[in-house]
């Protein structure tokens, strides 16, 4: 695969969940290496569904989904396990395993692969260190706040060093400070680790943070900067869904200047 080939390619995807109206109606887009695609839209517009299809948790009724050039719509559950190793997903409500500690939750993927215990411990600590939650390693999810759960979920998704990260409203219901922390983690993954991402949200403040800020690595510390007058430094593009269709695709600058009535109302 060359660097110009998309990491994720969605081609004419249609998905029904009962009823006559499709949840996704002929959706097509591509995400390139190191890019973060922000999917915005009202509730029920098909945003979360597209993430489930990319991960192979569900299959489209029509169309194709390519992950690094491989059509995953033809794969069975066993074959999908190999594809899912490349993808990390942060679920809307964290979806941490209640009966497992933070350590066991984060280490889950590595335990399943049967990796060495010492290596697992080191990787778990590294991943929890990235989200700033090393101290919570022995705790159970019920002992964590909403924001901490999301950060553990990010650490769990990151543990296998996936090339693709999917975020399903990771800041929903969180206070601005915690949301900011999570956004910074996502920006750092995009800019420092070149992780390709799809970020689903309806919180425009978070979406614009991702689209206008970028991270640099210096003095053994990650620094965050605003684009200011420079445009399109942050490797992020917007997709707007409406009733299962894409009604906008482009950078934040174009989105803000859009004359479309629906987009204007959404951004207001």
């Amino acid at each position: 695969m060359t660097t110009l080939e998309p990491v994720i390619e969605i081609k004419d995807v249609v998905k029904f969940y009962g009823g006559n109206a499709p949840v996704l109606d002929g959706v097509s887009f591509r995400v390139f290496r190191g890019e973060t695609k922000i999917i915005i839209g009202a509730s029920g517009s098909g945003k979360s569904t597209i993430l489930k299809l990319i991960l192979g948790l569900d299959k489209p009724d029509e169309g194709q989904i390519f992950i690094q050039g491989e059509d995953i719509t033809k794969l069975n559950e066993q074959e999908l396990v190999r594809v899912r190793q490349k993808i990390g997903m942060v679920f809307q409500e964290s979806a941490l395993f209640d009966s497992l500690t933070v350590r066991e939750n984060v280490a889950y993927r590595l335990h399943e692969r049967g990796e060495d215990e010492e290596e697992i411990e080191a990787k778990v600590r590294q991943s929890l260190g990235f989200v700033g939650l090393e101290d919570a390693i022995e705790k159970f999810p019920s002992e964590l706040s909403g924001g901490m759960k999301r950060r553990v979920a990010i650490a769990r998704a990151l543990i296998g060093q996936p090339e693709i990260m999917l975020y399903d409203e990771p800041t929903a219901g969180l206070d601005p400070i915690t949301s900011r922390k999570i956004n910074e983690l996502i920006i750092a993954l995009r800019d420092i680790h070149a992780v390709t991402g799809v970020f689903v949200t309806h919180r425009m403040r978070d979406a614009f943070t991702l689209a206008t800020e970028y991270a640099t690595n210096g003095d053994q510390q990650i620094h965050f900067h605003h684009e200011n007058n420079f445009v399109c430094i942050a490797n992020t593009r917007f997709l707007m869904f409406r009733d299962g269709k894409i009604v906008f695709e482009g950078p934040d600058e174009v989105l803000r200047r859009s004359e479309d009535e629906y987009i204007k109302r959404f951004l207001a």
């Binding site: 559950e77 396990v81 395993f97 889950y108 399943e112 769990r156």
Partner: peptide, 9 residues
């Protein structure tokens, strides 16, 4: 779904 996403049946 998280379990499936992490490679477990």
């Amino acid at each position: 779904n998280a379990m499936r996403a992490l490679g477990t049946d």
